[in-house]
């Protein structure tokens, strides 16, 4: 019987292929195990997140927050009286519907009175108009400063790569 080189080569290739196959399958198995572990950990984390979210909303119950705020903060809920000096001064948009016994002009008068009586009223508007551009240069300045800051920050790091 004659043994050819091709036979030996084929045998070696078969052994080699078998080894590579074994190696690959081992790798795949290991990767799968890791994937499984990661998935399990992920699911566990998600469970924990669910519990923590629930606890967060439980601890943020409005009545509890209210109690804590009362105990620890020197603040109170906004009082409308502090915002509106005299509610009666706010003009009523609707008109009185009681059939007028006396002619009542007062219902529509607040705006009238303001416009006619106050001489300062027209003075305020141009003032406002003059004031309006005032904030904008400041805003521009601060925007410029912000942009400069950004440029500075950007210039430190990627200047070698990005900026010429």
């Amino acid at each position: 019987m004659k043994i050819r080189i091709s036979t030996i080569v084929t045998l070696m290739m078969a052994v080699g292929a078998g080894f590579v196959l074994f190696q690959t399958s081992q790798n795949v198995q290991r990767a799968e195990d890791r994937l499984h572990d990661v998935r399990e950990a992920l699911s566990k984390e998600q469970g924990t997140v669910r519990v923590l979210e629930t606890e967060w909303d439980y601890l943020n119950r409005p009545d509890r927050i209210e109690d804590l705020a009362r105990q620890h903060l020197k603040m109170s809920s906004p009082d409308l009286a502090a915002l509106v000096k005299d509610g009666k001064n706010i003009p009523e948009p609707g008109h009185a519907v009681l059939p007028p016994r006396k002619p009542v002009l007062a219902a529509t008068s607040p705006s009238l009175r303001q416009g006619g009586g106050a001489s300062s009223a027209p003075a305020i508007t141009p003032n406002n108009a003059q004031n309006l551009p005032m904030p904008s240069p400041v805003a521009n300045d601060s925007r410029q400063q912000f942009n400069d800051l950004l440029n500075d920050l950007a210039g430190q790091e990627p200047s070698a790569g990005g900026a010429p």
Binding site: L80, A81, L83, V84, D86, G87, K88, I90, E92, P93, G94, H95, A96, V97, L98
Partner: peptide, 23 residues
């Protein structure tokens, strides 16, 4: 009807429900 409902709070039985500025 809106005028009537407002009237109950400004002049009628529900004055204590008024909130300054919120009609």
């Amino acid at each position: 009807m809106r005028q009537l409902l407002r009237l109950v709070v400004t002049e009628g039985t529900a004055k204590s429900a008024d909130v300054a500025g919120f009609q």
